[in-house]
Amino acid sequence: MLTFDSMPANKPVRHITPNQSFSNWLLQLNERRETLLFFIWKDLKVQYSKPIFGLIWSIFQPLVYFGIILLVMQFSGRQTATTGMPFEVYLIAGLAVWNFCTSAILGSINSIQSNAGIISKSFFPRFYLVLAPMLKSSIDLLIMLLITAGVAAWYGQQMVLQSISLLPTMLFLLWITTMGWAAIATSATIMNRHFRHAIPVLLYAMLFALPIFYSASEMDNSLLKTIYTLNPISGSMDFLRASFGAATPTLNTTIFWLLQSLAWSAIGVLFFRKVEKSLSDRI
């Protein structure tokens, strides 16, 4: 058997084996966190090299959708039964959440390709490819939340006192679920690059499938209503809206959402760990 007698003392020993333990995987994520910060810093620096443009591009998409949906609603004369808040506030809150989820997942998928060179040449924890775009999108989310608060104030909706507990729950649901979904989408793309074309379509379908410009309470089909309610991203939207005065989700639903978001992230991490082994061979 191998001994370390001849190995120099006091130096870290890296053990290379066909399989890497989960605890080792987590340790590495922590050890190399400065590299993660550099990935985020790089993206921010590139985007905000001209600060005004950087800012505009980060909120351009949700604001354009905001305008379009408002116009369509007005022209079609459709009434929206929202849960006790002006439609504009309801809409911008939904778009803020959706925009984060979409840009984090797209960013993660694209980071595999834009970093192909360093993936095949050097080692860093591969999960940063999922985490970095998500953390970078969080800056955009922050700006969108400020805009949401602005829109709410404009329409006379004050932030409610409980939002100190509502906003962290909203962020938790959003981050953890998005991380899981981004990891799943990215792993699928690594396994088969054709998913790169399918996933953006699914993300835009989400704009209509999630309760962004209508609410689940409008539905008369109870099965469909349940499915809508089950989604932790809808949960995140509900919590954001609740911070501006809409009804607070019930405790049971909240616990269900929290558990579900944890399950998504677990599935995502497991899936990613399975495909990351062959990542450098597949790109």
């Binding site: 190995m7 020993v13 290379i16 061979d281």
Partner: peptide, 21 residues
């Protein structure tokens, strides 16, 4: 370098290791 994992065997590397990008 740890860029790709082996399918068999093992290796021990003591100290920091870098390869030129």
């Amino acid at each position: 370098a740890g860029v790709t994992l082996p399918t068999s065997g093992e290796a021990f590397i003591t100290g920091s290791f870098s390869s030129l990008l």
